[in-house]
Simulated scan of single mutants.
Amino acid sequence: MEQVKPIAGEANKNQMKQWLEGSKLQLVVMAAAIIIIMLFFSVMTDWAYLSPRNISNLFRQTAITGILAIGMVFVIISGEIDLSVGSMMGLLGGAAAILDVWFGLPLPLTIIITLGAGLLLGTWNGWWVAYRKVPSFIVTLAGMLAFRGILIGITDGTTVAPTSAEMGIIGQSYLPNMLGIIIGVGGLALYFGWQQKRRVMRQHYQLPVPSAGSAIGKHALIGIAVLSIILILNDYRGVPTPVLLLASFLIAGTFIASKTKFGRRIYAIGGNIEASRLSGINVEKTKLSVYAMNGFLVAVAALILSSRLGAGSPSAGNIAELDAIAACVIGGASMAGGVGTVIGAVIGAFIMASLDNGMSMMDVPTFWQYVVKGAILLLAVWMDSATKAKR
C-alpha cells in the first residue's frame, strides 16, 4: 500500500508529460491561433468581424469544410489521401440540383439518392486503393478529373437553378432560438454525464484521473463556450442547420475514432500497416470502409452546398479538397498516417474559414488569399515533420 502513492505520482507525471507533448497541446495552440486571428480581423474591420451576423456566416462557412475534413481526417489517419473530394462534392451537388430542379423529385428522395451516390463513389475510390493496390494519390487524382468532367457533362456547363424552397431547408434554415438552447443544454448534460461516468470507471480501476478542480474548470469552460456561441447565433437568426449537422458528425466521428474497434484499426493501419495485417486486421476491408464513409460525408457537404447556393454549379467545390486537407493538417493530423483527431480537423476547418471570411471582409485580392492559405498549409506540414523528427 505504501508504494501506491509514488506509483500514482509517477503516473500523473507521465500523464502531464503526454498532455504537454500530445494532442491537447495542439488544441491549446489552435485555440490561441483562433483568438489571434479573430482579434486581428476584428481590429482591421472596426469590430464588424465579431458581429452576430458575421459569426453566423462564419460558422455556416465552417460547416461544409468541417464535414469534408471529418471524412478526410479518417483517410489521412489510415495513411492515404483523397484529392477528389472537391470534384465529388461538385458532382453530387450538381446531381442533387438536377434531381430537384429538372425532375422535381421530393426532397427525401433527392437526399437518399445523393447520399447513396456519395457512398458508391467513395467505395469506388476505396476499391481501387484497397483491393487493386493503386496508390491513393493516383486514384483520387483521376477521380478529381473524372468527376469534374462528368459534372460539366451532365450540367452542359451551365448552372442548374433555382432549387426548390424545400431544398433550401438543408443549408439556409435556422433552428428556433429556444430549440437551439435546449439542444445545447441537453448535449452538454449528456457530455458531462459521460465524462463523470468515465471518471468513476477510471477511479474504480485505479487509473490516474485529473483533479476534481481541473475537471470542473474544463467543464465550465466548455459549457460557457458552447452556450455563448448559441446565444450569439440566436442574436442573429438562430443556430444554422448546417452547424447542427456539423456538430452531430463531430460527435459521431469522435466516438468512432476513440471508442470503436473500427476507429482503433484505422489508427493501427496508419501507424504500421504490416503489423496491423499480421495482427489479424482486415486492412483492405477497413480502407474500403474509410473511403465509403468519406464519400457519404462528401455527399452531405454537397447537399448543404447546393442548398446554400440555391443551385448546382459546374465550378462548385473547386479546390475544396485542399481546404479539407489543410484543415486536417492544421488540426494535428500527420500526412504519414496514424495521427489525427476529428475535433482537431474541425478546429482546423474553423481556422481556414476564419481566414477566408476575414480576408474577404478586408477585400484582400483573391490571389493573396491563395498565397496565405498555401503558406499556412506549408507551415503546418513543416511543423508536423519537425515535431515527428524530434520525437
Rank of each mutant, 00 (worst) to 15 (best):
Y291K: 06
Y291M: 08
A292Q: 05
A292E: 02
A292L: 14
M293T: 13
N294L: 12
N294I: 00
N294G: 09
G295T: 10
G295A: 07
F296K: 05
F296D: 05
F296E: 05
L297W: 11
L297I: 06
L297A: 12
L297F: 10
L297Q: 09
V298P: 02
V298Q: 00
V298C: 12
V298A: 02
V298M: 01
A299V: 08
A299L: 11
A299C: 10
V300I: 15
V300L: 07
V300M: 13
A301Q: 04
A301I: 07
A301T: 04
A301N: 09
A302V: 08
A302Y: 05
L303G: 10
L303Q: 04
I304E: 07
I304G: 06
L305Q: 14
L305W: 01
S306W: 05
S306V: 12
S307C: 08
S307T: 05
R308T: 14
R308M: 07
R308Y: 13
R308K: 14
R308F: 11
L309Q: 15
L309E: 13
L309G: 00
L309T: 13
L309A: 14
G310W: 10
G310Q: 13
G310H: 12
A311T: 09
A311V: 06
A311D: 04
G312I: 03
G312N: 05
G312T: 09
G312F: 07
G312W: 06
G312V: 07
G312A: 08
S313W: 01
S313Y: 03
S313L: 13
S313G: 00
P314F: 06
P314Q: 10
P314E: 10
P314V: 04
P314R: 10
S315M: 14
S315V: 14
A316L: 12
G317V: 08
G317R: 09
N318Q: 15
N318Y: 12
N318G: 00
I319R: 13
I319P: 02
I319F: 15
I319M: 14
A320D: 14
E321R: 07
E321K: 11
E321H: 04
L322W: 15
L322I: 15
L322G: 03
L322V: 15
D323H: 14
D323N: 14
D323S: 15
A324P: 11
A324Q: 12
A324H: 10
I325L: 15
I325C: 11
I325Q: 13
A326F: 11
A326R: 12
A326S: 15
A326G: 11
A327D: 05
A327Y: 09
C328H: 09
C328Q: 10
C328R: 07
V329D: 09
V329M: 09
V329A: 03
V329Y: 02
V329E: 05
I330W: 04
I330N: 01
G331W: 05
G331P: 06
G331A: 04
G332S: 00
G332Y: 00
G332I: 00
A333V: 04
S334D: 09
S334G: 02
M335R: 02
M335Y: 02
M335K: 01
A336G: 14
A336I: 07
A336D: 05
A336T: 12
A336Y: 07
G337L: 08
G337N: 04
G337M: 04
G338M: 03
G338Y: 01
V339W: 01
G340M: 08
G340Y: 06
G340P: 07
T341C: 00
V342I: 14
I343G: 01
I343F: 03
G344K: 03
G344H: 01
G344D: 04
G344L: 02
A345C: 01
A345D: 01
